[in-house]
Write a protein that binds this DNA or RNA. Structure first.
Lengths: 254, 254
DNA sequence: CCATCTTTGTGCACGCGTTCACAAAGACAT
DNA sequence: ATGTCTTTGTGAACGCGTGCACAAAGATGG
């Protein structure tokens, strides 16, 4: 999972499993596509295929929302779009601020997917005074000094952090202090937040490293099947217990 | 989170749990920071705190790699950095291509985190002929026509898709046909890939929607605790409370 | 009205991941 | 050596998520 971690003690009273919540946007996207093609109803099988999940899982997911399907027919597309949108809170307007307008921040500001579903980029904030006033994606960049005022004036509760790692925690603290309770973090750092604040992390480097792991494993298996040389059986050589076991640590900077 | 997955039947013979693999980069980052500060050893408790996880979980994760700690002391930082790097396959060079050099693609090309750990941007590819030859992040953009040749010449096995949704599947098919077996997908689409190809998805819009869900829930609970109103639409919008839900629902059989 | 067919909704079992709690292992002091 | 103290490594319990398989519900046709 990409990953987002927050301690949620348990699924609350209104209990929709976290895993289900994470899939709702996926269903919504598939349903929206169907809606645009004016498809009236869809079966769990079809929709599951479009969303790339198991149909039983999809039905169970929907069962948490209520019984919105009709047996023998399927689900009403428009109705389901509305129900999921409402459940996700997309029927209301969510002002969002993006902090850190570098390459990534600018890309995010320009990203169409943001505005599409109730999310509105309320402000762009950067620490560089030279950026102040400069328009990015049609929105003038404001200076970090005004962060608290911006949050308050716009009633922002969702913040996106796209700053360098070093500044992330500080920005996070200020956002939280100003009233932000949900943060999408692109900086490669673990953010510390008080109880009640949700943080989701998007880390490009981590995703690549996970792919590299599988890639290596695939290469190892392939080699093993062709020349018999076993994969890197991670058996630590007994030749020397501690550091100096011949292997030189390939230290690489972050 | 960056979420995304591919069907992995089960953890293979040399089985390191998928959840553990996903955390290794996290540990690695924390360890690298310690290494730079010349900290010689670290306890599971300290490292877990730095990585934002439970210490028992961390110890169990490491136990899958082998017994690299010393009881009563902790883990040797340098040694662990090396072991994890090797396990993740970061001791080798991974050429990567980025397809789709729009705002996001350019941001990725400029992202420092890529080059830092064995990942090397081997090429930038875009379908727009006007982009061809134009340097982005110091690398000249090449045209999609040469995709197959680029993949082959550079021995690329990891591809990053940052194209619009409409082009993603087609690009994916070509990448796979050319030999790419791991894909990091930023396009908001479900990619269909043959067995043996790993896909990880990073979807900004989905992350925001998940945050919105929790945000709404928090607002609902708050409201409920004060006036007992159910999970109605939140009350936060003060100004500009336009009605995005003007388009409503088709009615439905109760 | 009854039979048949389709598709939902869900009970159930299973496996993975998380966490607790503790014995084993080593460091260190005496 | 011996005892104490620290910290790892892991057995076991538990909870969540997944997927199967099927009964119930409704549509459809005769």
């Amino acid at each position: 999972m990409a990953t987002g971690r927050t301690h949620r003690p348990a699924t609350r009273s209104r209990g929709i499993p976290e895993a289900t919540v994470a899939r709702l946007p996926l269903y919504l996207r598939a349903l929206t596509a169907l809606s645009e093609r004016s498809v009236p109803t869809v079966s769990s099988e079809e929709l599951a295929a479009a969303a790339g999940v198991n149909s039983a899982k999809l039905r169970k997911d929907f069962s948490y929302l209520g019984s919105y399907g009709t047996r023998g027919v399927g689900y009403d597309v428009e109705y389901l779009v509305y129900q999921i949108s409402r459940e996700l809170g997309l029927t209301q307007d969510w002002p969002v601020v993006i902090v850190g307008i570098g390459n990534l921040g600018a890309a995010l500001a320009n990203y169409g997917g943001f505005a599409s579903r109730g999310f509105r980029v309320a402000a762009l904030i950067d620490a560089d005074p030279a950026m102040a006033g400069k328009p990015v994606a049609g929105i003038p960049v404001q200076h970090t000094d005004d962060l608290e005022k911006i949050i308050e004036d716009n009633g922002v509760s969702i913040g996106v952090i796209a700053t360098p790692a070093g500044a992330a925690q500080q920005v996070c603290d200020r956002l939280v202090a100003a009233g932000v309770t949900s943060i999408l973090n692109f900086a490669p750092t673990v953010l510390n937040v008080p109880e009640g604040v949700d943080v989701r992390k998007v880390d490009l480097s981590i995703e690549l490293q996970i792919l590299a792991f599988h890639e290596q494993r695939k290469a190892g298996e392939e080699a093993a099947s062709t020349d018999g040389t076993g994969p890197v059986t991670a058996v630590r050589g007994e030749s020397g217990d501690k550091g100096p076991d011949g292997d030189v640590p390939a230290v690489m900077p972050a």
